[in-house]
């Protein structure tokens, strides 16, 4: 889980071009949207693509998006729960 979260932080920085951040600047439980990292709706679409491309994980129900993308930890938990072996 720790390794997955570390990988996700690097991938999020790369995919969203957050050059002003380093992986250690993103807390495991830090909110990604709103007052947290300040991501927006276009970033949410980029994160959906990231999960699909890197982990072959799809989000079937768009209503689940806010809870899945709440933090790096919640994304990692979703990947673990939905990734086929």
């Amino acid at each position: 889980m720790e390794q997955l979260m570390a990988d996700l932080k690097k991938q999020i920085i790369e995919a969203l071009n957050l050059k002003h951040l380093k992986p250690e600047n993103i807390g495991d439980d830090q909110p990604l949207f709103g007052d947290g990292l300040g991501l927006d709706s276009i970033d949410a679409l980029e994160l959906i693509v990231l999960l699909q491309q890197n982990y072959k994980v799809k989000i079937d129900n768009p209503q689940d998006g806010p809870s899945i993308f709440r933090s790096v930890k919640s994304i990692a938990e979703y990947i673990r729960a939905n990734q086929t072996a």
Binding site: A15, I42, L45, E46, I48, V49, Q52, Q53
Partner: peptide, 13 residues
């Protein structure tokens, strides 16, 4: 590369 699936929105927009 992605076989016309999962396209990144930013460069498209």
């Amino acid at each position: 590369e992605n076989n016309e699936e999962a396209l990144n929105p930013t460069p498209f927009i």
